[in-house]
Structures are given as C-alpha cells and as structure tokens.
C-alpha cells in the first residue's frame, strides 16, 4: 500500500484524534444493533468478548466471542465506516457457541458483541480496542 504525504498527514490527524477520545458509537452502529435485536433490552451476563487492549495493527485484530446457549452472535465495530463485522449463526452440530476471527478496525473504538440466546433474549459485551500507528512501516 502506497501512502502519499497527504494520506499520511490525514492518518496522523486521525491517530491524534483517536488517542484523545475513542470514536463514539455512531448512529450506524445503533441501527445495526436495532436490526439485530429489534430494539429489545440487552443483559450483560453470559457473553464474553475477547479482544486485545491495544491492537498492533488495525488491519488484523484477533477477536473471539463466546456465549453458551446462543443461537447467534453479532460482532460490530462501532467506529468503522460500516459497523457490521460478522454474524455467527450456530448450527445443530456446533460444539460450543464460541468463535474467533480477525477483523479490521479503522481506529481506536468500541467493539461490540451481542448474542441472541435460544429463548430470544439478548446479551451484550463490549471492549475498547486501541489501534496504534506503526513505526516507519517500511
């Protein structure tokens, strides 16, 4: 990937803003949540989201989610241009309701996981991931 000086300046500015305050959960993330939950109340018990506190590279951020008994788990990145990341739908032969993947984060922000449980209720977990800007980058 080639960066022009202007790109680099813009990235730098983004980084400066990002280090001051994490992106707020934008309206798009709220909409994505509403689309998944239908606006239902969300609990916080029974779901785990594992993400690094500081991601070495926003291109490849390893995350995992776990919610025993969930029918599906949606993962959202509240500060990305489009917040959807993935929805894991667990089938009849799922050995657990755990899954891991690697995702892109446009900057420091909250990653959100919401599980739809078998009884139709919803639980939510979120985690702030700081995305750093690399060295000279070679």
């Amino acid at each position: 990937m080639e960066f022009s000086r202007r790109d680099t300046l813009v990235l730098g500015l983004g980084a400066a803003v990002a280090t001051v305050l994490p992106f707020r959960a934008f309206a798009a993330a709220d909409e994505a949540i509403a689309a998944f939950t239908g606006g239902a109340e969300m609990g916080t018990a029974g779901i785990t989201l594992t993400a690094p506190e500081i991601a070495e590279n926003g291109n490849t951020v390893p995350i995992s989610v776990s919610a025993a008994g969930a029918a599906s788990i949606i993962v959202l990145a509240s500060g990305n241009p489009t917040p959807e990341v993935a929805t894991f739908n667990f089938g009849e032969l799922a050995g657990s309701q755990d899954a891991a993947t690697r995702m892109r984060l446009a900057g420091t922000q909250d990653v959100i996981a919401i599980a739809k449980m078998a009884d139709g209720s919803f639980v939510k977990a979120s985690s702030t991931v700081k995305v750093t800007i690399g060295g000279c980058g070679g």
């Binding site: 959807e84 990341v85 993935a86 929805t87 894991f88 739908n89 899954a99 993947t101 690697r102 984060l105």
Partner: peptide, 10 residues
C-alpha cells in the same frame, strides 16, 4: 456454523 461476513473481516 454459518457466518455472515462484512468488509471488516481481515
């Protein structure tokens, strides 16, 4: 498992 994937997947 059946995963819906968005552009934020690496």
């Amino acid at each position: 498992i059946d995963v819906e994937m968005a552009p934020a997947i690496s």
